[in-house]
Design a protein around this nucleic acid. Structure first.
Lengths: 238, 238
DNA sequence: CGTGAGATTGATTGGGATCAAGGATAGTGG
DNA sequence: CCACTATCCTTGATCCCAATCAATCTCACG
């Protein structure tokens, strides 16, 4: 661990944070200039390419990560290789389970991502002295729990067609600027979508083709989707 | 609501709490005698019979509840009636999503339950002035999130046989005193188990019969189950 | 252009849903 | 104590949706 000189005469915001798109979002919004300054001495911004593994299941966690850009995929794998995606994280979500010594999921960059790495002990110390920060993380955790439970309904009780519509609606909602027509890039491959929905690649592909044939969506380049009318997609979600 | 005289000269623990089996568990463990005393003015212990509804989806929350005894079932229902159980709560879990104004799930007593009702505002005030309390709730929420994600794997990727084995293993683990042979009462009907596993009643029944035929479990009275060897059940979980 | 990864489409199979009938158990009232 | 009933559960027969197996297509990239 490096020695840290803390300049108590200025509480200016660190350059790294000043230009950071998450400065006023997520956990950083709960920090004052001085805390931000102290924390930023330990953080570093890293870039990962799609497919890179960020956390391995059952491996020790040494850092938390603040997702700045891109999408991170959380998944669990059974011994025989069956995989289930259990969550997606978008900016400015915090990556890594607070207070846990080892990860309970595998985290992979679903797209190219930028992440602000925060050493485990640095963040936990800050949490202890700043209840507002824990409160922020608490709110994110509650939201993730809500999302997980919503998804359990999709996994347990919806048909393949409803599952695929629900996934597209989920992504569209995350992107949606509110306009009538919505376009977006899928952050996941067909294989990952299948692992998210508990379906095979083939079934995902067939249902997407069906939605296209029914003019609910348009597809260009596999990854780019256009939804002319979100409400018409919505009613397919079951 | 009954009037309660509080002896301000002592910070003795309220009688109601003194005999409470959750006094040193769950959120109450984070409270000192004085806080407990203040809180207990607003709480009351209630009993509900199996099947009683405790919270309705999309209805305002006016009270949190500390589960003291029994099992509470959290579920979500699609418009057309399809139902998915999204969580089970055992003592000493806190019932009701902190900071939310309305429930996002339906909560029902799965068995007969005893619950200590805590008015929403009373608990939230206490949370604000007691970070340790929020920390406790945070830990429960993180655990629920872990459980939800584990269950997503079961829902999305396991076969009917593995799902039923996983459910029995889940219940057995919650009861397990550590002995070799485990016996317990199922807290859910076949219909509820189906709604938990994303299966029909018939499939649940068939898989239970199969486990019985394979001598993995013994069944008496529909509800009472005996597991001679937990490890043999475990390997059926996929 | 050739290659390979990812996606689509088609044919067939199978696991779990659905439809249907009957058995076990607890509660009720005679 | 014994029908009577309602509820819950089990078991069987059949059907259908999604998995599997297999072939082809698309496109990015060397």
């Amino acid at each position: 661990m490096q020695s840290v000189r803390n300049d108590i005469h200025t509480s200016s915001i660190p350059a790294l944070c000043q230009s950071c798109e998450s400065r006023h979002q997520g956990i950083c919004a709960a920090l004052n200039a001085q805390q931000l300054s102290a924390l930023s001495k330990h953080t570093r911004r890293v870039h990962h390419h799609a497919g890179d593994q960020l956390l391995a299941d059952a491996e020790p966690i040494t850092s938390y990560g603040n997702v700045l850009h891109g999408v991170v995929k959380l998944s669990k794998i059974l011994e025989d290789g069956r995989q289930q995606v259990v969550g997606l994280q978008f900016a400015p979500d915090l990556l890594g389970r607070l207070f846990a010594n080892e990860s309970r999921v595998t985290a992979e960059a679903a797209s190219d991502v930028d992440i602000c790495m925060i050493p485990k002990l640095a963040l936990e110390a800050l949490v202890r002295q700043n209840p507002e920060l824990e409160h922020r993380v608490m709110l994110q955790t509650l939201r993730e729990l809500d999302e997980a439970r919503d998804w359990m309904v999709t996994l347990g009780r919806k048909t393949a067609a409803e599952k695929v519509a629900s996934f597209l609606y989920l992504i569209a909602s995350h992107i949606d600027p509110g306009g009538e027509v919505t376009t977006f890039d899928l952050p996941l491959s067909r294989a990952d979508i299948g692992d998210f929905l508990g379906l095979t690649i083939e079934t995902v592909s067939r249902q997407m083709s069906k939605l296209k044939a029914d003019n609910v969506i348009e597809i260009e380049n596999y990854r780019h989707v256009l939804v002319p009318d979100l409400a018409r997609l919505r009613v397919r979600c079951g």
